[in-house]
Design a protein around this nucleic acid. Structure first.
Lengths: 122, 122
DNA sequence: TTACGAGCTGGAGTGCACTCCAGCTCAAGC
DNA sequence: GCTTGAGCTGGAGTGCACTCCAGCTCGTAA
């Protein structure tokens, strides 16, 4: 796949893909005769995964760290697992905050509806 | 309360409190004889609330918008309710992403444990 | 064969959300 | 009465995560 195809398939921009490569989040792909990047399909799954880490609040630096471990091979399995476990705990905490805030917003929305009803009748 | 006390009570820095005032997220409090800000206790609940909006991913600009509506009084009840309802939907989507990613991380962690066990036995 | 578009590089620019700084005033304790 | 420290202002600086740009090279279609 060419870079524009990867961009289309992932929703990232071409610039972002090159940027991710520069910071070490994506492995530098091989090039064709004209020096253009040629991506393997497997990159799509990887981009999707780092997208999920991103969407759940993992920082760039940590994603880069994870990518580096991944690139380093089997000796980093334990370290990778520990990173994922740590992130899992962060996510659980986020979930709690979300749930609390959802509840609070439900209350506030109800309260606003009340007041709206009342002011309409004045 | 003085600004340092509000900072201590909320976990925000003094600079951040003044910054929030500058951008309209916190109402400018009255000043004492020496020109120092004097806060009402009620600000603590408000700061806590905007902190929750922040923690659940609401953008600064939207929080400022909400603060402006709030300052404008009862005629904005409907608009405020609608903002909270919109944010509630964003949060529900976040929750789904979190849950999906949690599941995925559980699988990955298990998988890594498997591999670790295996490589240990080689 | 020439025009076009995709891709390349290094580096500058952007937007967000703070964070820090210089240089000032003031109040209170010693 | 002098020092210390908290607070004040306007403005500059920071870190993150992109995003854009100039100026170049290629490969393909007309």
């Amino acid at each position: 796949m060419r870079i524009s195809e990867v961009a289309a398939a992932t929703g990232l921009s071409v610039d972002t893909l090159r940027f991710y490569e520069k910071i070490g989040l994506i492995d530098p792909p091989p090039r064709d005769g004209a020096g253009r990047r040629v991506y393997d399909d497997a990159v799509l799954a990887w981009i999707r995964f780092i997208g999920q880490l991103n969407a759940t609040g993992m920082k760039q630096a940590d994603r880069v760290q994870y990518a580096r471990l991944r690139a380093a091979g089997d000796s980093t399995l334990r370290a990778r697992r520990e990173m994922l476990e740590a992130h899992r705990e962060v996510m659980r905490a986020q979930m709690v905050t979300l749930q609390e805030t959802l509840l609070l917003l439900d209350q506030k929305v109800d309260f606003y509806r009340e007041l709206e009803g009342r002011t309409k009748n004045v």
